[in-house]
Amino acid sequence: MPGFLKEYYKRNGTMMGSVMLGLVLFWTVGLIILPQLSMLDFSFRPNLPPPEIGGPKDIYTLENYKYLIFGPEGGGQDYNAVDLAVFYRTLVAAIFVTLFNLLLCYPIAYYLGQNKGNHIRIFALMLIIPYWINEILRAFALRIIFGETGVLNTLLVGTGIFDTPFDFIRNDIALYAGLGYAYILLMIFPIYNVIESLDHNQIEAARDLGAPWWRIHWRVVIPYAKPGISSGCTMVFMLSAGALAAPQILGGPSSLWFTQLIYQQFNDNSDWPQGAAYAIVLLVTCILLVLAVMRLFKVNMGDIGK
């Protein structure tokens, strides 16, 4: 037995140690790694009717991945322009949602983190309460606000700011608002957590040494909050890119989210291998993107857990 395991068992006892270790292993291996491996396996197989599974046609193939890039064989086009465009737009939109959320949430997190008192607790509670309402209801509520005859348009046309109702849904504004709103807490709390531990004297020291407020943030607060910012951004980006309900309900008729394509493959086309390939591509691309950005900003994996 390796040393750290021995130490672990000594501290927790054989019984309790085994139960905890078993649960953690079940969680990571049984519920995360194995299903993903099975998806990975699916993604390299052709879509066969059940009797042929395990038969001579059941061989490993790159067909499903080729399909995403080149489209159906003999489809008469060089690339699968439609799906690739959706893929690209999903990533760009997820990045945009992430940045927008960061800009919105950093000041809130800073305010919450550096102030004390009852009103802070009330403020935090007000941020949490909307999350008691389920995702679908929240998305439809936003439809009521952003719809053609919705609250916002009635207001804008009524006050004469706009002549005709603005189509917030077709222009994806409702979608961005919905995604942004859905993940606000995931951005605020990691940043708040870090900023709360920032010694206020450091801010005063920077001010005393002549720094204007934005320099204080740039040189003192943001570098300190970096682990929180990166963990918030990672979560918001991953979840926006993988969101399904919000794009389904709030997206315009012409704008598909990549997850909707995956859903169609699994559900409408019953083509699990194709869906699995799409999902794997999305997952791997997102992970690579996050790792690249972390590298760019010199964030360690260990910092994110802070």
Binding site: N201, Q202, E204, G210, A211, R219
Partner: peptide
């Protein structure tokens, strides 16, 4: 304001910037 006064304050807990090197700390102003 404190950033415009000809004073410099040394804090009880010093409040050095932990992520800046010593020389960057010293020459922050």
């Amino acid at each position: 304001g404190p950033n415009k006064r000809p004073t410099a304050l040394i804090f009880q807990n010093l409040a050095l910037f932990p992520l800046m090197k010593v020389w960057e700390n010293i020459t922050f102003s």
